[in-house]
Design a protein around this nucleic acid. Structure first.
Lengths: 296, 296
DNA sequence: TGTCTGTCTGTTATCGTTAAAGTGCACTTG
DNA sequence: CAAGTGCACTTTAACGATAACAGACAGACA
């Protein structure tokens, strides 16, 4: 049956909330807390009852007064707050991406269920959702097959990425006059320049910046299919960063320069230069991905 | 638990197979039949036992002799041969596409389970898989929401379609010297010209031809993401054909001419003309889709 | 020696069940 | 009277169980 990880997660979030208040302060109403914690009032009510029982708050009629700050030991451990579906996702990606599952090998959902200590239904559901990444395939009336991080996967992935990125950049350029976009771009530029200044030591911080940059560009297209595809890109590039440590500093430095060229192209309104800069960046990302897949 | 629809489907397929033989003829070996019916030997063996019991074949040692042709009444009815997952898919699409589910409305999986007479788990799994179409969205810890066949959906869909179609046509053109591609194109051309000749009466036969044409083009890209996206296109255009009956003959006739222009562009090797023809076709498909969504 | 068969074991599809979490409604409170 | 509360009722997430189906292996056959 359902575990109560939603409750535990929200309980912890509520403790955090109380920590930001002084003893004696009053908590908001149940609907207000429900909105804040993003759960239903039912869950909020069970949390409040538990907090009152623990003596963290006093429940009197409609008032919820903070009595004391919660102790560290009163938090539920992280292990228990993870929903079973999240656990499966984490474990599966670990297994697939760091383990040595060979291309073409059969994915045995019963074995995975045992290995991850979850039910087969959970695995089944996850595999279904994961299939959109194009890395696994279902055989009729039978099990799933891992298609592998093959060069054809990388090729197909990069081809689409280039189409989408080019489309997104056009859309971005067309909307550059809008204030929020302009500001976001300036912010990204500053972060790139900042990281470039301390690249010798902090080159590992590029990965989240890369993510932020491309997400900003892609969001400009305002297209659900591009946005969903970007999840795949994120996954692959996230792990690709982990696999390929060779020349990481140099590669990241080059990528920063390439990003800056794109940003400057956008800022100057030079469509031709922007497209050129995107093409250059895509081509080097492609090469780098291929190298790391080959080495893997 | 699992139903035996695989068995029933294969049983029917096996009866078809026997109908093509003369009484007295011998059936192939178990592995051969398993390959032919695309199921395991286990299933083949249960079918053979049932056929022998019914007196359709004689099982003697290693020989399986056909005694008589099967009767129509010996087939399992279609209703029983459909796997529960297929039933759900069919019913759900019917419900969504012909019913009047309003954009933004909540999808109640329990109600659907009752309505379709299947378990909630089945619905749950299907919704998960269907979510890749971008038409439904899961709200955290809660139910699914139908986003609707809105104009923004159509816009986002068409934008991607144009990118993919243009990419595919380039790939197709680059491989046109290969014999199978050339032949497939000639075949498509003939079918288009044939249908054009009897368009006054047979204009409803355009839908499958349209499907075949675009699938051929898209397959040339040899890209799993394009191929998967085409499933969405198919779904939407399939139902769009059902919704919009206005000017159907004219629209189909125009589309045939547009297809022929693309085919001729490819055959002549004129890249510019081909691209132009694709752009024209995409634009008219877009207009037609928008009109039918608005009217719906 | 290579393919086929009997048998047995392992895996998958699907369902029903149950606790957790969400939702609606009447009533209360300020 | 608008927002908050108590309570009952629905709906969802997740599991375990089981029949259907797939696959492996040893021995038989040709």
């Amino acid at each position: 049956m359902k575990d109560n990880s939603v409750y535990k997660r929200s309980f912890n979030a509520c403790l955090d909330l109380i920590r930001r208040l002084e003893p004696g302060a009053l908590l908001g109403s149940e609907p207000a807390l429900a909105r804040e914690l993003e759960v239903s009032r039912t869950t909020v009510r069970s949390i409040l009852v538990a907090l009152a029982a623990a003596g963290v708050i006093a429940l009197e009629g409609r008032s919820r007064q903070v009595l004391r700050h919660p102790l560290d030991a009163e938090y539920f451990p992280d292990l228990e707050t993870e929903a079973s579906s999240e656990l499966i996702e984490r474990r599966f990606k670990e297994w697939l991406l760091t383990g040595d599952v060979k291309p073409g090998s059969i994915i045995n959902s019963l074995e995975l269920a045992r290995r991850f200590e979850v039910s087969t239904s959970g695995i089944r559901e996850y595999l279904n959702r994961f299939s959109r990444f194009g890395l696994i395939e279902r055989r009729p009336n039978a099990s799933w097959v891992f298609r592998g991080f093959t060069s054809s996967f990388a090729l197909e992935l990069c081809d689409i990425r280039e189409l989408f990125e080019m489309q997104s950049i056009e859309r971005f350029a067309a909307q550059i006059h809008k204030e929020p976009l302009r500001r976001r771009l300036a912010d990204l530029k500053a972060r790139h320049i900042d990281l470039l200044g301390r690249i010798e030591t902090d080159f590992t911080q590029f990965s989240p910046l890369d993510e932020a940059f491309h997400r900003t560009i892609n969001d400009a297209a305002d297209n659900r299919f591009i946005r969903e595809f970007y999840e795949i890109i994120s996954l692959i590039f996230h792990y690709h960063f982990q696999w390929n440590k060779v020349d990481e500093r140099e590669r990241n430095e080059i990528a920063i320069h390439e990003h800056l060229a794109i940003i400057e192209g956008l800022e100057s309104g030079d469509a031709r230069a922007t497209r050129k800069a995107v093409a250059v960046h895509m081509s080097s990302a492609r090469n780098s991905l291929f190298r790391s897949l080959r080495g893997h």
